[in-house]
């Protein structure tokens, strides 16, 4: 029987994978994808717990992911634009090579 804690465990694992990716991947695009994983981990929580609560508050749990998806899309759009602008200046999307600013 799959219970609420399975969902919670799944979302924690997904979040940790995303965080690991953000910290270790050097390609700007891959970092963006890892951030999406972190967002979706939170979405799983919302969806799972809104089903679990059922009462008056379940609507907010279900609407939250809808907004999050929209926000994640706009964030990805801006992020890709910035990566592209860096690529035009430096011919690289590697985050490590963006190191002109160091004091």
């Amino acid at each position: 029987m799959i219970g609420i804690f399975h969902y919670l465990a799944l979302s924690v694992i997904l979040f940790c994978i995303g965080l690991y990716g953000v910290l270790t991947r050097r390609n700007g695009i891959a970092v963006l994808m890892s951030i999406e994983l972190m967002f979706n981990a939170a979405n799983i929580n919302f969806a799972a717990f809104s089903y679990y609560f059922k009462g008056a508050s379940f609507v907010s749990g279900q609407t939250f992911p809808l907004f999050v998806i929209a926000v994640a899309a706009s964030e990805a759009a801006v992020g890709l634009a910035i990566v592209l602008s860096l690529y035009r200046n430096r011919k690289t999307v590697n985050v490590d090579e963006a190191n002109q600013l160091r004091g």
């Binding site: 700007g28 801006v78 910035i82 860096l86 600013l101």
Partner: peptide
Amino acid sequence: KDSKSSESGLKYFL
């Protein structure tokens, strides 16, 4: 046109 500004934007974004 300023690569420093792009880099700053990327860092702030990440």
